Every structure is written in structure tokens, then in C-alpha cells.
Amino acid sequence: MNVLFLCTGNSCRSILGEAIFNHLAPAGWKATSAGSHPTGQVHPRSLALLARLGISAAGYHSKSWNDLPTQPEIVITVCSSAAGETCPAYLGSVLRTHWGVEDPAHASGTDEEIDAAFMAAYRILRLRIEAFLALPLAELQRNETKLKAELDRIGTLTH
């Protein structure tokens, strides 16, 4: 099962989602990430945070949704509508859900405050991914309506 974490720039949130998911996912599940307008580079603070937490980001790079190696079955958008961001609409017959997360790339303040914004995005994504992977996935793969409802519910979790 292929999962796509999608945002606009593909430098922070979607990369974190991809890395966390692949770190935790069972065999047969794989995540990738992409952006509708990729920045072309992974934010250095995303890479530093993943390294500190012992999560591999080897081979991850900022890429366009036009350059995906496989067709996803599930697309999770992570743009924050609260910040007025417009999430890209992935075309194709896939299950779509939205897990809005504030973009830490726009955080300002001291180094500690900016690092805290990256950690907050990480924690929300990890919580949601753990909840996703705790679902009875084999059963839900046969019931797309129920899976979509569960993924939409998970997208509201914040702690």
C-alpha cells in the first residue's frame, strides 16, 4: 500500500510524514512525499530533527508530484488551512484525507522557538501516523468508506 504525504513545498511537513511513516510502517506499506510546487530542497531543520530522533532520511528529497515512483492509494495533505494555505488537489482515483499541520518553515523567533515549531509538527504527525498504523489495516483496506472516515478522524488529533 502506497501513501503519499502532499503539501506545496515538500520541504518540511510532508518530508517528516514520509520519514515517520516509513520508520514505523509494517511490511507492505510505504510512504513517499511530494509537493505541488516543491522548493527543491529539504529544510535543514527537518533533516536535523530526524537525525536527532534516529529516523533515517537517507534518499529523501524535495520533489514534484509529477515525479512519483509509484501511484499512491492514499493521499494525505498536510497543508494548514488555518494559515490560509491552499492544499494542492491530487488528481486520480485515490483515497484522500487532510491532516493540517502548521508549517514550521514559516516559524520565527529564537532558534529554540523555531526548533519547537519543528518538534510540534513532528509530534502531531507522529501521533496521527501511530493512530493510522494502529487501525485494523487489513480489514479497512476492504472498506474504503470506513478507512476514509478513520483517516479523517485521525486528522483532527492534536495530542
Rank of each mutant, 00 (worst) to 15 (best):
Q71G: 09
Q41R: 14
P72I: 06
E18D: 05
A57F: 08
A57S: 13
N143Y: 11
E150A: 05
H61G: 06
P38Y: 01
Y60V: 14
R126D: 08
F21E: 06
I74W: 00
S80E: 07
T39I: 07
E150T: 07
S64H: 12
T110H: 07
E150L: 03
G40W: 12
C79S: 04
T86Q: 14
S46E: 10
C79E: 08
A25L: 06
E18S: 05
I124A: 03
K148L: 10
V75D: 08
T70K: 03
T77F: 06
E144W: 03
H98N: 10
I55R: 04
A89H: 09
A83H: 06
L47I: 14
W99Q: 05
D152F: 12
S56N: 02
P44F: 08
R128E: 11
A149I: 10
S108E: 15
G100E: 04
L135V: 08
S14D: 04
R52Q: 11
G28Q: 05
G35I: 00
A105K: 08
P136Y: 15
L50Y: 08
I74L: 11
E130H: 09
L157C: 10
A138W: 06
D152P: 07
P104T: 08
H37G: 08
S56R: 00
P69E: 14
V42F: 00
K30H: 09
I114N: 06
A116L: 13
L68V: 09
R13F: 01
K30P: 04
R142A: 15
L16C: 09
M1C: 14
L91T: 03
A31Q: 02
L147D: 01
E144D: 11
E144S: 11
T97P: 05
M119P: 03
L127P: 00
A131T: 12
E102Q: 08
A83P: 02
L49I: 11
Y90Q: 01
F118V: 04
I20C: 10
E73A: 14
H106N: 15
I114C: 00
P26F: 05
S93P: 12
W65G: 00
V101H: 02
G40N: 07
L147A: 10
P69R: 04
L133V: 05
T97V: 15
G59L: 01
S14Q: 02
F118S: 00
D103A: 07
R153V: 15
P44R: 13
N66P: 02
G9T: 01
